[in-house]
Design a protein around this nucleic acid. Structure first.
Length: 574
DNA sequence: GCCGTTTTCGGCCCGACTGTTTTCAGTCG
């Protein structure tokens, strides 16, 4: 069982404990341990010792031994017992807004309700109204919540809501009652998947600002409305939350509502050790506020450098900020060229010349064209007999656009046995090879990992595309040991892709940090099939920032001369 | 269940809002 699976089970245990009304601190201990495990660099295997696990902050004797048992037996007694005593439907019920573990437990114990459909029936039969702490309104809200669960999963792609969030934010910022405002929450932290859109604003007229907010044309429904907090639902089902404070409080509120919760908790603990209380209204020492004009000053109170929002995930940023070791994160303008582009030679809908023209307009110096290979018949992959034409057209296009460089590549399928799908003499004709999995997804973890490592060891492989194969909110990653993939890439001088398609964002930022530590270089690639997808590299830059990447970690920050040398050298040395 | 420059016991982040109550429980972030 790998780190991710074990961390998932620890989180599940926490949820199950919650539904069993356990000690809240025990619940948090399991959540913290899950997080700590995932953030750590420990690689789990038969040789993993309980002692090594205990060294991780947040994992103690008990959970260390539980993890060890999970590694060895793929199973855990308390987990099974909890699962047996807790109907699966109760976990589903947690998705219903306004319904939490306490109420779910009460309904289960007293009305035998163990699924969303049973709960819906009970509501329509009016069975909840007379229970203690329930009532007419609660019953109605639960019914509404059930409808929301049915209609939406409650999670949304960051990229799908960026524009709408910006538009709403602009309205708020332009409102005459607003002093300062910012997008906050997971959107400000550039999380790949978000639950809602958060906005923080300072004002002298909270009530008027709330009226303005709840009357926005985008608001389909008002969820809550108060003087400091309101929430509306948009047509799409996503909620926009706003929090208002007075202007002196703005920096603290912005920090607080940017989160993450885990980052805030960690910072609060640190504050507490220094005798400082921290909440959304200020930093307080001996009851007196410590004045801060902005977030920079807030961090300075703790002798910390400014932590960019993307890093606020309690992944080591607090310690790094205290030691002056925060990374100088990559910026959009660092990207000098774009790789992993599909043209009308396979399933893209743009010609090579169109790509060049568009990239030149975008200020780029080079393109790495890489159409699908022959095995990808569904994508009209380039057949052996078409290779000559494909290469020739790239050369001709390059000569048309002086000063612009085309690197000739192909996205070669990794076959089930780990070999690439062209013979070596064909692979050798390209400047770079992107190796990718597009078939046989259902191998075991061992088989899949070995398959990918074999492709990494292939002397022609330059880059491994979308290493986990996940499609956000749609398809789980393949069963693959990503730590071993990163290690193999490090050992074989192969680069990894950060696929910037907003549905992928793969390699995941949590693993990018590990790749960086292993000195594995990253390509940020849009995997573009249309001209308008070329700009998608921006989502890759955001994700790279979340993964602590600096300019030097990303290959396509090089200018065209440097990258030409880099690819040539790589080809020769491998 | 975890943790410790006061501690191996006794803490563990904090506040807004709703709906239920008539001072509070539950949920959410």
């Amino acid at each position: 069982m790998d780190k991710k699976e074990i961390s998932k089970i620890l989180n599940e245990i926490a949820t199950l404990l919650e539904l069993n009304d356990e000690n809240p601190f025990k619940i948090r201990a399991y959540q913290n341990a899950a997080r700590a495990l995932e953030a750590s660099n420990i690689s789990l295997g038969a040789e993993t010792k309980i002692k090594d696990l205990e060294k991780i902050k947040g994992i103690g004797k008990k959970i260390a031994s539980n993890i060890k048992t999970l590694i060895e037996t793929d199973d855990l007694d308390i987990y099974q017992k909890l699962k047996q005593s807790t109907p699966e439907g109760l976990i589903d019920m947690l998705k219903i807004p306004s319904l939490g573990p306490k109420k779910i437990k009460y309904l289960y114990d007293n009305l035998d309700i163990e699924s969303i459909s049973e709960l819906e029936l009970a509501c329509t039969e009016n069975k909840l109204v007379n229970l203690p702490n329930f009532g007419q309104k609660t019953q109605e809200n639960i019914l509404k919540g059930i409808n929301i669960v049915k209609k939406f999963t409650g999670k949304y792609l960051y990229s799908d809501f960026l524009d709408e969030a910006e538009e709403i934010f602009k309205s708020i910022k332009g409102c005459k009652y607003t002093v300062r405002a910012s997008i906050a929450g997971s959107m400000r932290r550039k999380k790949e998947v978000i639950k809602d859109i958060d906005i923080v604003a300072s004002t002298n007229a909270p009530r008027q600002l709330m009226d303005f907010f709840t009357k926005l044309k985008q608001a389909k429904k008002i969820i809550v409305k108060g003087d400091t907090k309101s929430s509306i639902m948009l047509q799409s089902g996503i909620n926009v939350d706003i929090r208002t404070v007075n202007d002196e409080q703005f920096p603290y509120a912005l920090h607080h509502f940017t989160g993450s919760k885990e980052h805030n908790t960690a910072l609060r603990s640190l504050a507490k050790k220094n005798g400082i209380k921290i909440n959304e209204y200020g930093l307080f020492k001996d009851g007196k506020i410590i004045g801060c004009n902005n977030e920079e000053e807030l961090f300075n109170v703790f002798s910390m450098d400014y932590i960019p929002p993307e890093l606020r995930e309690n992944f080591g940023e607090i310690e790094a900020a205290r030691n002056g070791r925060l990374p100088k994160l990559i910026e959009m303008e660092d990207i000098k060229g774009i790789f992993h582009i599909h043209t009308d030679y396979s399933d893209g809908n743009m010609s090579i010349s169109q790509v060049c023209k568009k990239l030149i307009d975008m200020g780029m110096q080079y393109a790495g064209i890489s159409d699908h290979s022959k095995t990808a018949a569904y994508a009209n992959g380039v057949k052996d007999s078409e290779i000559d034409d494909y290469l020739k057209e790239m050369e001709e296009a390059e000569s048309k656009f002086s000063g612009f460089k085309i690197f000739k590549g192909i996205e070669s399928d990794i076959l089930a046995d780990g070999s690439l799908d062209y013979k070596n003499d064909i692979l050798a004709r390209f400047d770079f090879i992107i190796a990718a999995i597009h078939s046989s997804f259902n191998l075991s973890e061992e088989e899949m990992t070995n398959r990918m490592i074999k492709a990494i060891e292939n002397k022609y492989t330059t880059i491994v595309a979308h290493p986990s194969g996940r499609i956000l909110l749609a398809r789980d990653p393949y069963k693959v040991n990503i730590t071993r993939i990163i290690n193999a890439a490090a050992d074989n001088n192969v680069d990894l892709e950060l696929n910037a398609n907003p549905h992928r964002l793969d390699l995941d930022w949590r693993m990018l940090k590990y790749a960086k530590e292993k000195n594995v270089k990253i390509f940020i690639n849009p995997d573009a099939h249309h001209l308008e997808n070329l700009i998608d590299y921006r989502y890759g830059v955001y994700t790279a920032r979340k993964g602590w990447l600096e300019k030097e970690d990303v290959i396509n920050t090089m200018d065209s001369k440097q990258i030409a040398d880099y690819l040539k050298k790589k080809k020769k040395e491998k």
